[in-house]
């Protein structure tokens, strides 16, 4: 270990920063290339369809469960919390706003990062390691068009639908706990749910969902595509894909919220 001279420390920061910039640049190039192939023929409808089914349909149980319990715990927590200052009446509004604006998209995004991001990184990583991606090129098929573009398109379109389902199930979970456990009046609760809900609450959540879907797929594909050799390389790619997309989801969640709601 070298002596920790102040200038070495500065060099360390500089090196890390340059590495960060280089990665960010590569990522942007990767994303641009991937997105551009969504709009350029030929289109691989079968692959797009398969990815849509995988992302949209097969994520339903996971996302549905997440939404259900998130909604249920929201009702319980806000009830016990708000009871301290006699604001129990706000439970319905809190549940619906939290679900549509925040928890629906973020939790679904994180679950999909674990499910889809990891599997994409592992699949593309294995294809890289076993030279299948090189084989695509030699068969006059662009790997971005064949592998990346269908995944991006499928995630961006399917995630909002998934989140819409999560929203509905989450609100339902809150309703069940409120009405059957906390003895709320059912029609009253439903009325309260609709009363303060605005289009923008749901819409912002769906925009988030789309962006998160893009981020998860981008990181999954990027890490897999650039996977290092061997089983270890694929393992590292998978981990990096999940971790980086989860962090990006939380960062972009703040940014989008800021854009929609800050006044």
């Amino acid at each position: 270990m070298r002596e920790l001279h102040p200038i070495n420390f500065v060099a360390l920061i500089g090196r890390a920063f340059l590495a960060f910039l280089a990665t960010a640049g590569r990522l942007v190039l990767f994303a641009t290339e991937g997105v551009s192939h969504i709009f350029r023929p030929p289109f691989y409808w079968r692959l797009i369809w398969r990815q849509m089914v995988d992302i949209g349909y097969y994520s339903l149980p996971v996302v549905g469960m997440t939404g259900l319990f998130a909604g249920m715990v929201l009702a319980l927590q806000s009830y016990t919390g708000f009871a301290r200052f006699s604001a129990e009446g706000a439970v319905a509004t809190v549940v619906v706003l939290s679900m549509t604006r925040e928890l629906g998209p973020v939790l679904a995004g994180l679950m999909v990062a674990g499910r889809i991001g990891a599997s994409m990184a592992a699949e593309l990583g294995t294809m890289r390691v076993t030279e299948q991606i090189d084989a695509l090129t030699t068969l006059s098929t662009n790997p971005f068009k064949y592998l990346v573009a269908p995944r991006l398109l499928a995630a961006v379109t399917m995630m909002p639908l998934l989140v819409l389902v999560a929203d509905i199930i989450g609100v339902f979970g809150g309703y069940v706990v409120s009405v059957y456990k906390l003895d709320f009046n059912a029609p009253n609760y439903l009325k309260r749910t609709w009363e303060f809900l605005e289009f923008q609450d749901v819409f912002s959540g769906l925009v988030k969902a789309s962006v998160f879907g893009f981020l998860v797929t981008l990181m999954g594909c990027y890490q897999g595509y650039n996977s290092a050799r061997g089983a270890q390389g694929v393992g590292a790619a998978t981990t990096n894909a999940v971790v980086s997309s989860s962090i990006l989801i939380l960062i972009f969640n703040y940014i989008i919220t800021e854009l929609f709601f800050s006044k």
């Binding site: 076993t130 299948q132 084989a135 030699t138 068969l139 006059s140 098929t141 064949y146």
Partner: peptide
């Protein structure tokens, strides 16, 4: 070009005939 890879590099999500016909269908 045609290329035979060291590990064959067959697409494992596709059936054998789809592998062979890949360049014809996609390319």
């Amino acid at each position: 070009f045609g290329m035979l890879f060291q590990g064959a590099a067959l697409f494992d999500s596709l059936r054998v005939w789809e592998n062979v016909a890949f360049g014809l269908i996609q390319g």
